[in-house]
């Protein structure tokens, strides 16, 4: 991660943010408690992952078999939730175009604090086969913090299940702190996002 000059990337609240509709307060870091209760919460987070059912690219077709009888992720306590408020796991499935990135940022910011991101497919790692496209991003971790990458084009559902296992391990070790990282390096993330989203017509932080 590069050094951030917070003076330069100052966050401005634009005029079009109606305070009735948007809360424009910036994200805050919520530090971890260093005790057994936090461990218990971590265990519960790891065993009850609710993923946001938002397919950003072609990889979302690999998420559907996971709910079926053959792979059945519900035995790991993973369930799809349709709203970002209730979900705590965001699977960025496949390539992300600039237009989709805008929606991803909005959805990601609406999720509540312990939130985890799985980048599914090579496209989220380095652009994959769309690495020189004019419209798809190359590195997802420059825009939102990513916990686990699942490489492949496309990864099979088994690979995604392995990714879930890795994420669970990470959460139980207390390393799933993407939300706090986002709040800490907010200016850097926001500058990167604004670099490619030219018509920024939403509040800087929309929750």
């Amino acid at each position: 991660m590069t050094e951030v000059n917070n003076e330069e990337n100052k966050i401005i609240k634009p005029d079009y943010c109606d305070p009735e509709l948007f809360c424009t307060a910036l994200p805050k870091e919520v530090p971890r408690m260093n005790n057994i209760i936090q461990k218990f919460y971590d265990w519960a987070q790891a065993n009850s992952l609710w993923l946001l059912a938002f397919g950003t690219g072609c990889g979302s077709i690999e998420m559907r078999p996971l709910y079926t009888a053959r792979y059945d992720i519900s035995r790991y306590g993973i369930a799809p939730r349709p709203t970002p408020r209730q979900s705590n796991l965001f699977i960025i499935s496949g390539y992300v175009s600039v237009k989709t990135l805008k929606r991803i940022i909005r959805s990601y910011e609406q999720m509540q604090n312990p939130k985890f991101v799985i980048g599914l497919g090579s496209c989220t790692i380095n652009g994959g086969m769309y690495w020189d496209s004019y419209n798809t991003i190359n590195r997802l971790d420059h825009y939102i913090p990513v916990d686990v990458y699942v490489a492949g084009c496309m990864p099979r559902p088994e690979a995604l299940i392995a990714g879930f296992d890795e994420l669970k391990k990470r959460i139980k070790e207390g390393r799933g702190e993407g939300a706090n990282e986002y709040a800490k390096n907010f200016a850097w993330y926001k500058a990167n996002q604004k670099k490619i989203i030219k018509d920024w017509d939403m509040p800087d932080y929309n929750w």
Binding site: F40, A44, G77, N88, W207
Partner: peptide
């Protein structure tokens, strides 16, 4: 026991709006 885990999880979410 999944409902219990879910309950603990949502109670352990750190922010609420």
């Amino acid at each position: 026991w999944q409902p219990y885990v879910n309950l603990v999880k949502v109670m352990g979410v750190r922010t609420a709006i």
